[in-house]
């Protein structure tokens, strides 16, 4: 039994560097994406995270066209594309009849189709799969530094803007009455969302990057009603999902990205049933 556990749980990480790097990338991603996901959830922007994750695709694809599978070219391209879509969606929602979610839907669908078309112009279906689904097992030291860097910057910025961000989220009218400016905190937060999606798409791909953001956040929301605890729990769930997903992927020979997101999904489904805020709980409103 101990041998089996050793072979299944321990050996993949002691014997293979790519597994260790994948695990550290998963942990780093979870540490920042979890709190960002919690705040997206509380701002009722869960689906906007999904829209933004698709929006980075054309930028990443142009980066790929210009410089091949370059970490920085695809990352910067994705960042620019994500921010452009966020700004255009915000602008059109203020100046037209469309609400922000509808504006996001319009722009992200255009971005997604545009991105796939750009990749198909020069790349193979394997390249397209890399962009769409990531390759966490192929993470090298540079990618790891990028993910860890984004994670560190996210935590620092969140710590700085935490008070106005939470207040703008909870009672925006009050913030305006005390001459507090929540607008810039909102924009800084959107930048963090896009940055974390860039980190996520290097490992999980554009389609699943948002999974590590939202699923741990949903689990945390079901279990606790305190913001600090929610953020901490989302990080723990993300880390646990990364570990379990990689172990399952290694031993069952299945794709690692979906295995990680499905592990987080399993936490969500179980929590949905047994948690205090879930279907059988009594604390939901």
């Amino acid at each position: 039994m101990i041998d089996w556990l050793d072979q299944t749980l321990w050996m993949p990480f002691t014997d293979f560097g790519f597994m260790r790097r994948a695990l550290i990338a998963g942990f780093a991603l979870s540490i920042s994406a979890g709190p960002v996901g919690v705040l997206l959830l509380l701002r009722r922007m869960s689906l906007m995270g999904d829209a933004l994750s698709h929006a980075v695709l054309p930028g990443a694809a142009i980066g790929y066209l210009v410089a091949g599978l370059s970490l920085w070219a695809m990352g910067i391209g994705g960042l620019v594309a994500g921010l452009l879509v966020a700004m255009m969606a915000g602008f059109t929602s203020r100046r037209s009849r469309l609400r922000e979610d509808a504006s996001f839907a319009g722009f992200y669908l255009i971005s997604l189709a545009g991105g796939v078309m750009i990749v198909s112009l020069r790349g193979s279906s394997i390249d397209l799969l890399h962009v769409l689904f990531g390759t966490i097992l192929a993470i090298d030291a540079n990618t790891l530094y990028l993910i860890a860097g984004i994670s560190s910057v996210t935590l620092l910025v969140l710590a700085v803007i935490y008070r106005p961000l939470v207040m703008e989220c909870f009672d925006p009218e009050f913030l305006r009455t005390v001459k507090g400016r929540g607008g810039w905190a909102h924009h800084a937060f959107l930048l963090l969302v896009v940055l974390n999606l860039i980190a996520g798409f290097q490992s999980l791909g554009t389609l699943m990057a948002v999974g590590m953001m939202m699923l741990p956040a949903l689990v945390a929301r079901l279990w606790t009603s305190a913001l600090g605890s929610m953020m901490l729990l989302s990080v723990l769930v993300g880390c646990a999902a990364s570990l379990i997903g990689l172990v399952v992927s290694f031993n069952a020979g299945v794709a690692s990205g979906p295995a990680i997101v499905l592990s987080a999904g399993a936490f969500y489904l179980i929590s949905l049933v047994i948690s205090p805020g879930g279907l059988l709980g009594r604390q939901h409103r």
Binding site: L42, V166, F170, R221, A226, L227, R285
Partner: peptide
Amino acid sequence: AIDHSFPVS
């Protein structure tokens, strides 16, 4: 106008 389910104390 205020979300009572928001997780603040």
